[in-house]
């Protein structure tokens, strides 16, 4: 591990390559027990992890990409879907979160939302520089939420940027007086919206079998026990295994499809109740921003909203958007 210049007051530490997730989980699980809410609140490590040369041209990555595309319903292509880049850089973010000075427990954090921008297409063979850091700890009515940001450059240009927001229950922001700020913590999400949500008419139905978590675990490397089996999930308080949130978001992204999202796009997702496995999810994928007449191309700025819920119930699993972005001008 070598040092590097600081940015935003964070010290850059270079990793020799992508860390192995298995080892990180063992480490993270062991450390989780020691990470408890402390007086004085949460302070994030002022460090950015960097992996300067992540090669994607090797056969293993190609095979993994193909498996990922098959699983989430993306067409076979050498262009890396935004979700694949997320799983590719995930170990770097995870390495950050299992650091001893990262104050929150890896196991037990709740993935609240994710916002990813695919700014230019990344293809198999491109060499990436990956960076990850944590920022913006802020209050949540049930604890503290924190953003784990990851970026990937290709040839010195930012190609991909992902912000994963996690909730650590029971923790407090540094300097925050108790939970007094809880009410103003989530202005974007009024309480009513969560409690009185009515599903739209569906456009699709997913039947997720019991092995869905294991299958996504295999291609993503995210073998968090809550996804792997009913037994292991029960150990963490879930009645059954739950689907990876990013798997459901990736399927929705695939359902929108490459033709509709374009090469550059923003993809967001917000998670509500987990999807228990096996299970059925009704989804609605809707274009916003007007009607497209026969023979016309969708107007720029039109985007897609997607929702997932339990069929016949108001149990909402997730919602998100896919918005095409203008491609940066070619040099």
């Amino acid at each position: 591990m070598t040092g590097g210049p600081a940015s935003d007051g964070r010290r850059v530490e270079d990793l020799p390559g992508l860390p192995g997730l298995g080892g990180l989980y063992v480490k993270g699980a062991a450390a989780s027990a020691t990470k408890r809410p402390r007086p004085g609140g949460v302070t994030l490590p002022a460090v950015t992890y960097r992996v300067p040369g992540v090669a994607t041209g090797d056969p293993a990555t190609a095979a993994r990409l193909r498996a990922y595309q098959d699983l989430v319903g993306e067409p076979a292509s050498d262009v890396l879907p935004a979700g694949f880049l997320h799983v590719l850089v995930f170990p770097v973010a995870t390495a950050l979160m299992v650091r001893g000075d990262f104050p929150l427990p890896l196991l037990g954090m709740v993935h609240l939302r994710n916002a990813i921008r695919m700014l230019r297409p990344v293809r198999l063979g491109d060499v990436l520089e990956v960076r990850a850091w944590a920022e913006n700890p802020r209050p949540h009515r049930r604890g503290v939420q924190v953003d784990v940001v990851a970026e990937a450059d290709v040839s010195g240009e930012l190609a991909w940027r992902g912000v994963s927001t996690y909730l650590a229950k029971g923790f407090q922001v540094a300097g925050a007086p108790g939970s007094a700020t809880a009410e103003s913590a989530e202005p974007s999400e009024p309480v009513e919206a969560r409690d009185f949500w009515t599903p739209p008419l569906p456009t699709g139905r997913w039947r997720l079998d019991a092995g869905t978590g294991r299958a996504y675990g295999a291609v993503s490397g995210d073998r968090n026990p809550i996804h792997m089996s009913a037994l292991s999930a029960k150990a963490f308080g879930f009645p059954k295994a739950i689907a990876h949130g990013m798997y459901t978001a990736a399927r929705a992204l695939a359902d929108v499809g490459p033709a509709h999202r374009g090469e550059a796009y923003e993809w967001t997702v917000e998670f509500f109740r987990p999807v228990l496995l096996p299970g059925t999810v009704d989804v609605a994928i809707r274009r916003t921003g007007g009607v497209v007449h026969p023979g016309e191309r969708p107007a720029s700025g039109s985007s897609y909203v997607y929702d997932g819920w339990r069929p016949g119930k108001d149990t909402r699993h997730f919602t998100g958007t896919v918005t095409p972005l203008p491609l940066p001008p070619k040099e």
Partner: peptide
């Protein structure tokens, strides 16, 4: 004769 197709995938 005339054939047509619609985009039902995105609920349109």
């Amino acid at each position: 004769a005339e054939t047509a197709a619609v985009d039902f995938v995105h609920g349109h």
